[in-house]
Nucleic acid binder design. Structure first.
Lengths: 124, 124
DNA sequence: ATTTGTGCAAATCCTTTGCAGATAA
DNA sequence: TTATCTGCAAAGGATTTGCACAAAT
C-alpha cells in the first residue's frame, strides 16, 4: 500500500465532508487540488478503502450512484429525507420519532453467516 | 392498468419463488411459459409493481443486480450469508444470535421526512 | 530496481427508452 | 376503437479494466 497524493487527497475530502459524497463529487473536489486526478483513481481508491474497512459504501433507494463515508466504527443508520434529500446519520439507540423524524420505511440488511455455514466453519 | 399475460406470469413467479430472484432469473423462468416475453417487459413490470407497492426491490452489498420480492406487508430484514450467498427473511423482532446466525454487519436505511421538512408539510 | 499506482480510453454490466406494431378494455 | 402494453434494438449511466507510463518504496 503506497501513500500517494491522490489517496491522501481523497481521504482528506472524506474526512472533511461528512455529507456522504458520491464518487463524482469526490472527484470534482479532488480536481481542485490535483487537477490531473482521474475518476478511475477515485473509484479504485474508494473500493480499496471499502475493502480495508476504512470507508463505508452507501446505496440509497432510488439513487443510482453509490455514496461514501468514513467508517467511524460507531453503528448508525442512514436516514434520507424524501423532501430535501439530505442524508442524516442517526444513532440506532434513540427512538427516531422523538426527535421529529417521520419514518416511512425502514430497510435492514444483515450480513454474516447463516446457521448452516456457521456450523461448517466451526467444524472445518 | 391492463391485465396482460406477461404481468400475470411475472406475478405468479414472484408468488411461487420466495428466493428473491433477479430480473434476469424472473425473465428466464417467464420464458418457459411465454417464450416471446422480453427482458424489457420484465424490468418495466417490476418497476411498476415496486411503484405500486406490490413488490420490494432489494439491493444487497456487492451485488450489482437488484432482487425482487413480493411485499408481504410484514416488516423483515434481509440476511445474506457470505458463505452460501443465500438470502433469508428474518423477523425484526427476534434476536438473531439465538437462532444460530452469525451477524457480522448490519446496514439500516430509513426513509421519510426529517424534522425540518416534516414541519413544513404540517404548515403547508 | 522493483513493485504498485495512475490516467486514459475503451469495455462492461444492468437497466431504461423510443418507437412501431400488438393487445386489452 | 383507443389507450395502454409489448418486443426489439439501441441508448444510457455508473463502475471497472487493460495497458503503458509514472511514482513510491
Amino acid at each position: 500500500m503506497k501513500i500517494t497524493k491522490q489517496r491522501e487527497v481523497i481521504y482528506e475530502i472524506l474526512r472533511k465532508n461528512r455529507n456522504h459524497p458520491t464518487a463524482l463529487e469526490i472527484f470534482d473536489e479532488a480536481k481542485r487540488i490535483l487537477p490531473d486526478i482521474s475518476l478511475s483513481t477515485v473509484y479504485r481508491t474508494l473500493k480499496d478503502m471499502v475493502v480495508h474497512g476504512d470507508v463505508v459504501e452507501i446505496k440509497l433507494e432510488g439513487e443510482s450512484k453509490a455514496r461514501y463515508d468514513l467508517n467511524t466504527g460507531e453503528d448508525h443508520a442512514h436516514f434520507k429525507c424524501r423532501a430535501c434529500n439530505r442524508i442524516y446519520d442517526v444513532s440506532l439507540m434513540l427512538p427516531l420519532d422523538l426527535v421529529g423524524f417521520k419514518v416511512e420505511k425502514v430497510d435492514v440488511y444483515i450480513y454474516g453467516l447463516c446457521p448452516e455455514c456457521s456450523q461448517k466453519e466451526v467444524t472445518a
